[in-house]
Design a protein around this nucleic acid. Structure first.
Lengths: 327, 327
DNA sequence: TTGAAAGCGCTAACAA
DNA sequence: TTGTTAGCGCTTTCAA
């Protein structure tokens, strides 16, 4: 059991000063003599006093919570991304003495988010993923609460933090092209996610001039494997995978078929992760830092809560990893 | 933009009643005529009024948040379990108009949890995982806040919700024994987790009389693979995997070595998941329901917050899946 | 530099 | 059945 919860009144009485003085000593707002300030702070420290955040919240109409919204039905590999991201969010939040309230959404069902908004339990929201015509974004806009998205959106007036997928994919694709690839295939996931579209576009631009084919909206492993069969049949030189999971399945399929990389087909991935990191031969891929994505998003959100107006779009870097799988 | 935030005062004034009446209409506490009640509720509905949870919290000294604590460094497969679990927690919380504040801990570093406790931002806590001599449990006990653990602990006076791993593992093991297994090996993870110990004990008890060997504390894939090599060298008849990830690696290793299941070696897993669900031949395993684990834990916690004293230990069921991998 | 006092929006004794 | 009133613990004008 900790000491029974002290209030600011107790402190004030004990020290023979007013609550105001105590409050100011803590917050640092308003002038106060260094002497009293120290005295108050020392006492607080000694007694291990912590102001009641709910009371503070009521007085300032703040909750000191931010909402973190993630899909509730992620696949294992996406989950890993969100986990990393979230850690960045939590770190940034903690630094500002904020806490993180978590909510899940199932693709287009945003009841959970809506509830948090209606209840005003958060001062701002981070949307972990963006969809084409995202209902979450619409609800957030309507609510008037500050929010930022991780991932881009075509929606207007939305503060977004993202890796520059399009550019990264374009660069990787064009490098593959320069290496003399004669044909390429993109195997990708559902196109209702913004990131899928961006990657596809980057691929198209980077590959301009090279014959390419697309196998999009592959959700299940069988679909991916079928795509691989098609690609092999068409004697495509290079398979480009839209993400790590797809790449993982592709690698498995190629192994099963006894196809050698890069001799018989080259492979690259637009997203690197632990899932394919250790593969032999090493896979050419793009590397991002999910944690700093979360961290940046949260910092940005906090600045918005404090009334700043950050730039609409922050693009974080990426790393190009050219490896043995593409020669 | 929603309507500017109404307060209970606005409602009262508008309706010509007192705040108390409005408050009572909403909460259902205290007597009130059905007529006024309806009138108030209708008005509230029409105006889409939502009471300010922070104010309510201050008045009742509650936060209407519960803390959800998970390891920040989970592996992909564990992550999946926690995700499911969390959904159960969120569902139960939502039903009670509670929200979920998430915190991560890194094995023995509980700063995040400590902070939430010190700040009194939650009315109770669910610990997603238990360790042997868990520092989180110690901190929670000290704080005096209600909490429940998912997973068992030897710590006294802790409300726990768990699958009955020991019993399940004992049952599965004894069935394998009855099937005439001449020798068995358990490949397991780190023994600082309570669940690892329980499973091991269940295995030992169920296998009593059968020669067994142990390969515990396998963290990395290489360690697991080495264990498999040992087991094969020792001509053990049946490999029992402590969890799904271990099993997954074991299956991969056996395939790589060209060992046929169940002809050359039998395989069972103490934990089933998507990771091994689809494997051919089908793997004998134990099946649990993580979501109901989370749901139950949260319900239990909420009852504690409301002053009830639930029984110390709730054991949820399991499903025995006898499949082709053990004949 | 400090303090008094009025909120923030709700709940809950106590009265009527 | 309803209302009055005093908090809950903090912040923030406004005065001193």
């Amino acid at each position: 059991m900790t000491t029974e919860n002290l209030t600011i009144d107790d402190i004030a009485r004990e020290l023979g000063v007013s609550k105001t003085t105590v409050s100011r000593s803590i917050s640092g707002k308003g002038r106060i003599s260094e002497a009293t300030r120290r005295r108050v702070l020392d006492y607080i420290e000694k007694k291990n006093y912590r102001p009641n955040p709910v009371a503070r919240g009521l007085a300032q109409s703040r909750t000191y919570n931010i909402g973190w919204v993630v899909p509730g039905d992620s696949e294992m590999t996406t989950l890993f991304f969100f986990q990393k991201c979230m850690q960045g969010v939590i770190d940034a939040a903690t630094e500002a003495d904020y806490d993180v309230l978590i909510t899940t959404v199932y693709d287009h069902n945003i009841n959970g988010l809506q509830r948090v908004l209606d209840n005003r339990k958060v001062d701002g929201v981070i949307l972990g993923q963006t969809l084409i015509r995202d209902p979450g974004i619409l609800a957030l806009k309507k609510s008037g609460i500050p929010f930022v998205t991780i991932g881009s959106t075509e929606e207007k007036n939305v503060v977004q933090v993202d890796n520059d997928h399009m550019r990264a994919c374009r660069e990787l694709s064009s490098i593959l092209k320069m290496k003399g690839i004669a044909s390429a295939a993109l195997i990708g996931g559902t196109e209702d996610k913004v990131v899928t579209r961006s990657r596809r576009q980057g691929f198209e631009e980077g590959m301009a001039g090279v014959p390419v084919e697309f196998h999009m909206n592959c959700e299940k492993n069988e679909e991916i494997e079928r795509a691989v069969e098609d690609v092999l049949r068409n004697r495509i030189e290079c398979i480009v995978c839209e993400d790590d999971r797809i790449c993982y399945v592709v690698l498995g399929k190629l192994k099963k078929e006894g196809i050698r990389i890069p001799d018989q087909v080259r492979v690259a991935s637009f997203y690197n992760s632990a899932l394919i990191e250790e593969y032999q031969p090493a896979i050419t891929s793009l590397k991002y830092d999910p944690m700093s994505l979360g961290y940046t998003a949260c910092r940005t959100l906090l600045s918005m809560i404090d009334g700043e107006k950050p730039k609409a779009r922050q693009m974080l870097g990426y790393e190009l990893m050219l490896r043995a799988s593409t020669l």
